[in-house]
């Protein structure tokens, strides 16, 4: 049993470094038809006031920090870590979480699901911050 464990550990350690999960997620959106990222569009999306979704949440920065480097707050007062990857290392590394929040927040703020292109722009912009 012990030997097996050590063996397994050895194999794990010697295998090549895992691909960045963010790249996998972005690749997934590209497979849904998105092209290359447009950072300016991503930045605009972060701070635009849409007003086409739910009245209490007109823009992403209703909850997320005023800048990607700042922390935010849910409407119930719970802190949200900064969205910039340089500040919060594990941002956009869990596909389920990314999908869940894009679905919720895009519907809540814009009033529709985001397109794959918008998602790529948004993620790439924040990964560059």
């Amino acid at each position: 049993m012990k030997i097996l464990l050590i063996l397994a550990l050895g194999i794990l350690l010697s295998s090549p470094a895992q691909a960045d999960p963010r790249d996998d997620i972005i690749a997934g959106f590209k497979a849904q038809g998105a092209g290359d990222a447009n950072l300016a569009n991503g930045q605009k999306m972060y701070s635009t006031t849409y007003g086409s979704g739910k009245p209490d949440t007109p823009k992403c920065t209703t909850c997320h920090g005023a800048t990607p480097q700042q922390g935010g707050q849910t409407r119930t007062g719970k802190a949200i870590d900064p969205m910039a990857v340089s500040r919060t290392e594990n941002r956009f590394t869990d596909k389920k979480m990314v999908d869940k929040w894009f679905r919720r927040n895009c519907k809540g703020v814009i009033g529709r699901e985001c397109t794959a292109q918008e998602k790529v722009d948004f993620l790439t912009f924040l990964a560059s911050q």
């Binding site: 739910k54 009245p55 209490d56 949440t57 409407r75 869940k100 679905r103 919720r104 927040n105 519907k107 809540g108």
Partner: peptide, 12 residues
């Protein structure tokens, strides 16, 4: 959950 106190809190 998709209209949860003014927010979208939807889940699978």
């Amino acid at each position: 959950l998709d209209d949860h106190f003014g927010e979208d809190a939807s889940l699978d």
